[in-house]
Write a protein that binds this DNA or RNA. Structure first.
Lengths: 257, 257
DNA sequence: TAAATGTTGTTATCATAATAACAACAAGTG
DNA sequence: CACTTGTTGTTATTATGATAACAACATTTA
């Protein structure tokens, strides 16, 4: 039994997707099986889905609670799936309901709470992981109102960064120090090309060192650094000291060589 | 310690909501606590949330993976929550992504699968539960193209049903037998008032018997019946026998007394 | 300064509940 | 009878929730 055209092969992957809509693995598998054989009996479903026959019954019960399948009153019972787009739409709907309700309450808690003013701006926050840093960085850049200073040696992110910068509103003055630039240059963006700061053989220590400094509106700075093997770390802060330091750093670089 | 205005009291309820967005109970509780004290330390969070101090660390780790909190690199560490609307929006976003991907694949499976034609129309399907029946019924009525025949003695649903019927497109001819009608009467709707079929003392057996018959486009019939204490059951089918039976039933009623 | 105390962050361990998987059986069906 | 269906109970297995113990520091106090 090595062939069977296994739709069950990809079923596992889809099951994962359906889990975030609140289904269990079995519920997902059973539903998927039913789509391939509307009106199947419990046993047929069991065979198609790989779910133990005994488990199929309670699972179908739950699915019919959730309005994803209907049950015939024949003997043996037969089951019918709700059309997938309807099904997913209705699951999503209920998640969205929860989301808006949660949003409402949480927002109240957030604004209502006499949040202890802890001089957030004096703290330095850190983020780990390529993806997280990327997301946060783009988010922060998006919020820029006046000016952005950048030092940038990080090939991986280059394309996305450029795109984001080009999409900023005109009023924002952008100054960039980097090792190469191929995109169009609106007049509010000023690029200075500099060779990467290869402090002698970079292979000493780690390979593929990359990094960047971003200073936004003179009141928020983000520093990214990392290497292929150690992963990336970013710091960001509104602390005046932090900003002053990296502004100096930027100026130093800007006037170098 | 009986007062303290317990925001933790409702926290449990909100935690439930957040679970459908993919958070665990602890993740929810910790995040909620953080909203009340941005920039708190692990210990403070522990005190506010009731989550064991040792558990707070891994939970915060997961939350920061999910981009819901950021971490300072001070000692002790301090934590900052993402603004609740952003947070929820981004969680919801990822669920929606999964949903659309799932929808795509499932629809393909559904349409592609040489669904064994099992003469669905010969089967009779059943639904249980007030809410489920309501939802399905309205959905089916919505799909009507030509005609709807109705026998209706079910106070609970009356308002919604009327609304739905009035919202149908003009082409659909509607014939209703019921015990009372107060809404406006467009000329494609025809109502016959009849006293409920009280087959002598209805208290014999169950109290509050209610029910209805709906025949849509002469090719789909839904029958609802139930009582306050036993709950409701609905049958629906495209079986010709089923439809013929209830059409006769309708005619019988229509010409009665 | 040395000892005592408290805090933080980390790890290991245990408990519990949800889900998954299996085995057994009674009732129904042909 | 042989077979299938539907149901029940029991046992893994996993994810999550909860507790305990500890090393590293920092703070206090004598």
């Amino acid at each position: 039994m090595y062939s069977m055209a296994e739709p069950g092969a990809q079923a596992g992957a889809i099951a994962e997707l359906l889990k975030s809509l609140g289904l269990t693995k079995y519920e997902a598998l059973v539903y998927i099986a039913l789509l391939q054989a509307s009106g199947a009996t419990a046993t047929e479903i069991h065979e198609l889905s790989g779910v133990p026959r005994a488990s199929v019954y309670p699972v179908l019960e739950r699915l019919s609670q959730k309005q994803l399948v209907s049950v015939s009153n024949t003997s043996p019972k037969r089951f019918n799936p709700k059309r997938p787009d309807e099904a997913i739409e209705s699951l999503l709907q209920s998640v969205e309901n929860d989301a808006t309700r949660a949003k409402k309450v949480l927002n109240r808690i957030y604004s209502l709470s006499s949040r202890i003013e802890r001089e957030d701006q004096e703290l330095i926050w850190s983020i780990h992981g390529d993806e997280h840093i990327r997301a946060r960085l783009l988010e922060l850049l998006q919020g820029a109102e006046e000016s952005i200073l950048i030092i940038f040696y990080w090939d991986h992110l280059k394309a996305e960064l450029i795109e984001k910068l080009l999409s900023l509103k005109k009023g924002v003055r952008v100054e960039i120090i980097t090792d190469g630039w191929t995109a169009p240059l609106p007049d509010h963006i000023n690029v200075v090309i500099k060779a990467p700061p290869k402090e002698t053989p970079r292979e000493t220590g780690q390979k593929w060192l990359a990094g960047g400094v971003f200073i936004i509106d003179k009141k928020m700075a983000i520093v990214v650094m990392g290497s292929k093997d150690e992963g990336f770390t970013a710091l960001y802060s509104e602390s005046v000291g932090f900003i002053r330091f990296f502004t100096m750093y930027w100026n130093f670089f800007s006037n170098w060589e």
